[in-house]
Design a protein around this nucleic acid. Structure first.
Lengths: 353, 353
DNA sequence: CTGAAAGCGCTTACAG
DNA sequence: CTGAAAGCGCTTACAG
């Protein structure tokens, strides 16, 4: 312990500043916290001394009494590190970080459970009081997690994933309108006069994101009575390779199709490569539309027309809601629950469709 | 305050556990910290009670006295969110998180400075005592940052970026051998009998990563006396678009070149697209090699031969060193300084070269 | 407006 | 082996 102390130059505390300013620690504390009790001139004088010395509050001492840390937790989707997931969620995560940074809030990043020890990270972070609130980028889980969060009284917001079927009504969710996204894709293909349309859905997946996109796409086609013509291909995973395979599995039908909607950008890119290999031009012969508007979409040659996920609004709305919930909790204000904020995606027209 | 308390079910403290176990808080504290002072049977009994109640230490109270939090900070490169940077650094960051997760260490992620308020995040995190150590994924900076970290006595490791020219010798750096990577690329092209070789360098950049790769590439060519034949193209930024442009800028020479090394995967992919558009087959007419082995490299059609960055070793070595430094600091053990751990990249042969 | 004092929930000499 | 007590660095009634 003494060795540690020795190696550390100056562990500045309120007491030190108080001594320098010839006032009590109470006054320093109030001054640096901008208490109206202290005259502005005194505040300024003390602030100057603190700044000159590079003083910062010890976050632990402070949190112990104020019961807040200035850190929030972000829970990443469990498959965050898969390329196909990371491509979209990485940018969503960046957007969340941007918004939080604006409010000068620190950010602890974790998965729902530790992937090696299996520990429940959420309970750990919450019970140890390491976070003031949580942004959970995961579908609302069935188990007791939500009950735990509620009983712990910690603010939390679910972001990105639509409510699963039978989702409890007492949690706050913010997510993009996947159905609308699919619908926009259909309208676009139809507006280009495409008739023989295929789409690449995510095979065997219960994942409602993709299911909703497909439903919206179907609705769009149905409005123009084209739905009969729809060929649905099933991809095994949301990757370029799977998109390439899916297109290949069409066989000769691939030579007739003139419009293609893929459930994400990677599938669309893979399918486009397969189309080109068959001698079918994109967008000359076939219009191709992806989903997500990942950064790849803009840089591909030809660049990919796609459905833009409202990342910015999603991040902003999520953080603002959480920050509001944290403030309300501190104020003791009763908070309403069960918000459903649904954000609209947009069509981004580029070269492929 | 009372309102807050009311909404919270049970704020379990050591005292509560002590009451339940009919012992003192000292005994509970020692038991849960596995102190050998307490007989194993007592420890087990108390541990069981704590677990049943879902007790966890209040991290703030604990840190206040132990002077450690169980959180480390990762400082991201300032251009982390650019696609070209994120593609590699996102996976490096994931790898770092994996290693830390294994040790059950929490992780606060930040940039060197807050991009909105301009605040120095490192000083903030360190002075407020929010982190036990720092992994800095940034070139060693000139300013007083390092001096500050040293005077604060906080352990830190610079990861990924090679030491800039004139870098101070008293900091620990772990990074891949970029020169070797370039060399490997040259050897590969030569082994394929390629003679008319071009490379896409990063234009106008002082960035030594790219400079070193180019130097290694030159060395490789020189060994076979082919260096005269080298055409160096300058890209403006490390993107697909820039790679495409760079290749285009070769004009008719593009029809003669038979080997191409690009300073990263995106440049290679963009250049390959341009080559194909000119009717030059990859790898039939031209062998193409990228750098980084980003996840895109494996999924492209044709898949990209590239230099694999030793992300895993880099992450492991970085975290292990930092964890060791933190332990030594606590133990008061004198630590050596100025380590330079250089990791070897490897050639990953795929379809393009 | 200002300060002395209690207290947040832990750990750890110190005394038994 | 066990516990009472001091102390980590803050905030905040409370009293002036």
């Amino acid at each position: 312990m003494t060795a540690v102390r020795a190696s550390v130059c100056k562990e500045l505390t309120l007491k030190d500043i108080a001594r320098l300013a010839r006032v009590s620690v109470s006054t320093v504390s109030r001054s640096l916290n901008d208490s109206p009790l202290i005259p502005a001139s005194t505040r300024a004088r003390i602030r100057k001394i603190a700044d000159r010395k590079g003083f910062e509050f010890n976050a632990h001492a402070r949190s112990l009494v104020t019961r807040r840390v200035g850190t929030i937790g972000i829970i990443l989707p469990s498959d965050y590190e898969r390329f196909s997931v990371n491509l979209y969620h990485g940018t969503l995560h960046n957007a969340l970080r941007d918004v939080l940074e604006r409010s000068d809030i620190d950010l602890i990043v974790a998965f729902l459970a530790n992937r090696f020890t299996g520990r429940d990270n959420v309970r750990k972070l919450v019970t140890r009081k390491k976070v003031d609130g949580l942004i959970i980028v995961q579908p609302v889980p069935d188990g007791g997690l939500v009950d735990f969060l509620k009983s712990a009284g910690i603010p939390f917001v679910f972001s990105h994933y639509p409510p699963p079927p039978g989702c409890r009504g007492d949690v706050d969710l913010i997510y993009p309108d996947n159905e609308l996204g699919g619908y926009l894709a259909a309208r676009r293909l139809l507006s280009q006069g495409r008739k023989r349309i295929a789409c690449i859905a995510m095979g065997g997946s219960q994942d409602s994101e993709y299911a909703l996109r497909l439903a919206g796409f179907r609705r769009g086609l149905a409005e123009s009575g084209v739905s009969e013509a729809l060929t649905v291909l099933e991809a095994q995973e949301p990757t370029m390779g799977a998109g390439y395979e899916a297109l290949g599995s069409m066989g000769a039908m691939a030579d007739r199709v003139d419009g293609l909607f893929a459930m994400n950008d990677l599938l669309a890119i893979g399918a486009s490569a397969a189309l080109r290999e068959r001698g079918r031009g994109v967008p000359g012969d076939v219009s191709v539309i992806g989903y997500d508007d990942t950064e790849l979409a803009a840089s591909m040659k030809p660049s990919l027309t796609t459905i833009h996920q409202p990342r910015e609004e999603l991040s902003t709305a999520t953080c603002e809601l959480l920050i509001d919930l944290i403030a309300r909790r501190r104020a003791g204000t009763e908070k309403q629950e069960g918000r459903r904020v649904v954000l609209a995606p947009t069509l981004v027209v580029r070269e492929t469709g």
